[in-house]
Amino acid sequence: MNLLQVIRSDSQQSAYRVVGTQRIIVELGEHQFRVLIQYWNRRRWTIPEYKGVRYLNGVLRDGDGSWVVVCDDLTALSCALSCLPTIYQHLLTPDSDDWQPSEGLKGG
């Protein structure tokens, strides 16, 4: 399923996809949209080390390493995509058919 299909069918409003050793998690919460990038490091999923900008073009970098956009729906997707570092933009591909509901997450 693509991202919109998963989000619309998932009561928790979240989805993820794995691309190689990277995982992207998208969560649509009440009045916010979160994107979290993780790496597989031999035993578990971890977030990359982040330094620098914490707020850019309406996107806040939260303490857990996720990008947060204040919104009520997936219209923030394009904003979040444009603010992600270039090396992660290929992960946030809504039309990809390999998105999974978050209930399938393993190895947090």
Rank of each mutant, 00 (worst) to 15 (best):
N2S: 06
N2C: 02
L3Y: 01
L3S: 00
Q5M: 04
Q5A: 14
I7H: 00
D10I: 00
D10E: 14
D10M: 00
D10F: 00
S11H: 07
Q12W: 05
Q12C: 07
Q13D: 09
Y16S: 05
V19C: 12
V19K: 13
G20T: 04
T21M: 09
Q22G: 06
R23T: 11
R23S: 05
R23N: 05
I24D: 03
I24C: 08
I25A: 04
I25L: 11
I25D: 01
I25F: 03
I25V: 15
V26N: 00
V26G: 04
G29S: 10
E30H: 14
H31K: 15
H31F: 10
H31L: 11
Q32N: 15
F33M: 13
L36C: 09
I37V: 15
Y39Q: 12
W40D: 06
W40S: 06
W40F: 13
N41Y: 05
N41Q: 13
N41V: 09
R42F: 04
R43F: 13
W45H: 09
T46H: 09
E49V: 13
E49D: 11
K51R: 15
Y55L: 07
N57C: 05
G58L: 00
L60T: 06
D62P: 01
G63M: 13
W67K: 01
W67L: 12
V70G: 07
V70A: 08
C71F: 07
C71A: 15
C71D: 13
D73P: 05
L77D: 01
S78R: 14
S78D: 14
C79Y: 08
A80S: 02
L81C: 09
S82Q: 15
C83P: 01
L84H: 12
T86V: 12
T86H: 11
Q89F: 01
Q89H: 02
Q89V: 03
Q89W: 04
L92Y: 02
T93R: 08
P94E: 00
D98H: 03
D98F: 02
D98M: 03
D98C: 05
Q100F: 06
Q100G: 06
P101R: 06
S102W: 03
S102P: 04
E103S: 15
E103D: 13
G104I: 04
L105H: 02
L105G: 05
